[in-house]
Design a binder for these strands. Structure first.
Lengths: 230, 230
DNA sequence: AAACGGTATTATGAATTCAAAATCAAGACA
DNA sequence: TGTCTTGATTTTGAATTCATAATACCGTTT
């Protein structure tokens, strides 16, 4: 009773490679050996190479002509740029969500909000983030815009690797929760512009970036060659 | 003295296919014959198939398992969704541009604006649109955000095919120009929130969508098969 | 010992080949 | 006549093969 095989192989392979990157098995800047991965996955190079090309267009790997693929190295600037765009998309999702969202869905989000508040009061950071993430995903889903969702998921995936250890100070956390209170209120009132503004400026995103400063190595752009500095 | 050949073949092929789609040689919903295109381009199926997979991830073609590729059919909903996201991205570009843009670049944009006004006074629609487009591109460039630019270009490409015949009524046109006046003013004052708001709500985008209603066939989702409904 | 040069090896890019699925074309049957 | 099989043909998906570029290895030279 294995999984049925009609999905294209290259998609399967791409998902596997994405996992490896996400889990840090393949580290940023690391050269990807086609041969090794092919053996590991038990497929030929054709689907792997197709997967790598797709992932390159997604920004997860870089292809160096005649020199293979490397996991894209995240820089602070790239992450900041990505979060800025994600914030804009979230803002749009807020505006759109207010147009059509049903009372039931608002209620669902409100319940998630209450749960999140619980975690906040107990200072359970991980559960807090998890529910927080869910709330944002629900709003994006409510926006009912495939393109928006697709773009957001793409960007989200690029920066997934840096989702560790956000430094959450009391003050920031308090303000983030206040933002969420205002979000719920705007959602209930179906105040699109307001919800949009809150989400665009929601400091959750900026926060992560801030905490990243100094966490990502900004150094060499090229492959470490034998002949390094004398 | 031909172009040197170190660019990957699949990229070359993808560009060619994109042109064919843009020019309407390959029509929406049309099935793409790998064999025919390979012969036309003089390449094997490998790079073509890689190109198609990348283009699928870009949303330009759809891959049906074991049934080949088709040019993505644009629906009114898809176009509307795309323009909504593009507007959000433009809004962000406005906010970001105001942070760093130099006086010289503002002046360049202002000159473009004057040119555009000329075209407006003469009611030269095509040149007006061209310069209009340039202004938006300049603002996006001034935002200095690779990710933003990448996303915008991707979306822009998807809807390039419908850039025909926008119904530009006098009233709409007048308001669009007013928007642009306000944009320049906001840019000069480096008023990011203002420029962002204008761009997000700039009716240029909505307008096109409106004019599309009824222009795109919304019908069948599947290939016309022999064995249709009983 | 370090630097250079040349060959062997390996990895990549692309074409070709092979297996399986889908499509097409007749022919059997109601 | 129209529908349903059945087999031939085409097309797709993936593995393999082949040519070329990059890398590693190793001896020579200074």
């Amino acid at each position: 009773m294995e999984k049925i095989q009609h999905r294209n192989l290259y998609r399967e392979v791409a998902d596997r490679v994405r996992e490896l990157i996400e889990q840090g098995v393949l580290t940023p800047g690391e050269r990807i050996s086609e041969k090794k991965l092919c053996e590991q996955f038990g497929v030929s190079r054709t689907p792997l190479r197709e997967a790598l090309k797709v992932m390159a267009s997604e920004g997860l790997v870089e292809l160096l002509p005649n020199r293979g693929a490397r996991v894209t190295r995240l820089t602070v600037k790239k992450v900041r740029n990505t979060y800025d765009v994600m914030a804009a998309l979230e803002g749009l999702s807020g505006e759109l969500a207010c147009r059509n969202i049903s009372d039931e869905k608002v209620a669902t989000i409100q319940r998630l909000h209450e749960t999140m508040l619980d975690h906040y009061r107990k200072r359970d950071l991980q559960p807090y983030f998890r529910v927080n993430q869910q709330i944002h995903e629900h709003i994006i889903a409510a926006a009912d815009n495939d393109v928006l969702e697709e773009m957001y998921n793409n960007l989200s995936q690029r920066v997934k690797r840096v989702r560790y250890s956000k430094k959450m100070t009391e003050d920031y956390w308090k303000r983030a929760v206040e933002d969420h209170e205002a979000m719920i209120e705007a959602l209930q009132k179906r105040d699109g512009p307001m919800l949009g503004r809150i989400l665009r400026e929601h400091l959750c995103n900026k926060l992560e970036v801030a905490s990243l400063e100094g966490m990502i190595e900004e150094e060499e752009d090229e492959l470490p060659s034998r002949a390094v500095s004398s």
